[in-house]
Design a protein around this nucleic acid. Structure first.
Lengths: 212, 212
DNA sequence: CAGTCATGTGTACGATCGTACACATAGGAC
DNA sequence: GTCCTATGTGTACGATCGTACACATGACTG
């Protein structure tokens, strides 16, 4: 049936190239031609493998979301006990999320698409559902949502609060920002969000029941 | 000195039109021509008033950030006492941030630019600094950072977790999502993040000293 | 009133874009 | 070997883009 001539993973390479080009120049700056050139395939291949830019973007960002989720799962899967889980979250933020310009850019490009087009919102929704499922190994569902949102916010603010000059967050008159301080503040935030408020209106269990 | 012929706020109208076009079609889909058409000015006006797209984008998003910050300031400025402040934050999220598709889209477009280009990061940095200053009327600096990040994360996740079909968040097997429940969860999250963890390593005051 | 200059506009050019479609070519059937 | 077809490619077209630049024109000067 399949009589692929050669290079059966052309499609995959095109998707990889698309992510590279988008990371470098944005969805705005990405064109069939640039992606084709970067992947080393002829222009005609683009329309042959993908019906249009939206299909390519959808596949590319689906792959991107999956690969991030995999790391998320892995870190949280390894943790045993609630303290290790909290530490895993801190590590995630500081080691995985904050260290890669590429991932920062791609994440925002995806969010921008998702904000406007429902078909991309399906991708972000699945990604978030996976994140919460991973957190659900250690925390109750309500806490998972809050914690997931906190992770998002801390990552974004750390990245977008950086000095225009370069990558790392800036210090104003405000709390100083050497790496250890920054980590400690993240740890404190994670501790707070995973600890029920005293006058809580919700039942109150933060940690998951022992089984499962 | 100034001998403006007529229509002295051409520039302003162009900036407004730019935001409209970007909200509708994204930075990717915005062109000098479309913006000019929407503003009702000739194409030549674009290059006359702005050196290029980046200058226009920078001015447009600066205005956008300022207008959001104004509302932020206003709500927090009106609150007296820490409980009112917490309530103001909840209201902010549910009434200002979640209700406008336009603002959601523009915010992400800005973040995407900021993720890639330092000159736009100056805009996000100022915006965040203003937010923290407003929160600083009621909370200590460390809490301000955490709370600001939480607000960001909750807003984003609420918007991007929506059913592909439409605007509002979806429910899975997870916590249900009618408006009052959603608000209560937000309130709980705000309460948690503004309450120091028991085993805190940081000194521990959450509320600001009485004076000022 | 005439002259002059800052202010603003219309048009045309070269670059780049996505897509369609006629064509090439490898691999299996016989 | 010879066909035949699924698979893949090169090219050319029309649309759209940003920008440059020659020109128009209102408003002040004298």
């Amino acid at each position: 049936m399949a009589t692929r001539r050669f290079d059966p993973d052309r499609r995959e390479r095109i998707i990889d190239a698309a992510l590279d080009v988008i990371a470098a120049e944005g969805v705005a700056g990405a064109s069939h031609r640039k992606i084709a050139a970067h992947a080393g395939v002829p222009l005609g291949s683009m329309s042959y493998h993908f019906s249009g830019m939206d299909e390519l973007l959808a596949e590319a960002f689906t792959r991107f979301g999956t690969s991030i989720s995999d790391r998320f799962d892995e870190r949280l899967g390894r943790a045993v006990g609630i303290d290790a889980a909290r530490q895993a979250v801190v590590d995630l933020i500081h080691e995985d999320l904050l260290d890669s310009q590429r991932e920062l850019v791609l994440t925002h490009e995806l969010y921008t698409l998702a904000a406007r087009k429902p078909e991309f919102r399906a991708i972000t929704r699945d990604w978030m559902a996976r994140s919460r499922r991973a957190l659900g190994l250690h925390f109750d569902p309500v806490t998972c949502r809050m914690l997931d949102a906190l992770i998002e916010g801390l990552s974004i603010h750390a990245a977008l609060d950086a000095e225009p000059g370069n990558t790392e967050p800036h210090s104003d008159s405000e709390p100083s920002d050497s790496e250890p301080h920054s980590r400690a503040r993240t740890a404190e935030a994670v501790a707070r969000i995973t600890t029920p408020a005293l006058d809580s209106t919700t039942p109150d269990t933060t940690r998951k029941a022992a089984h499962e």
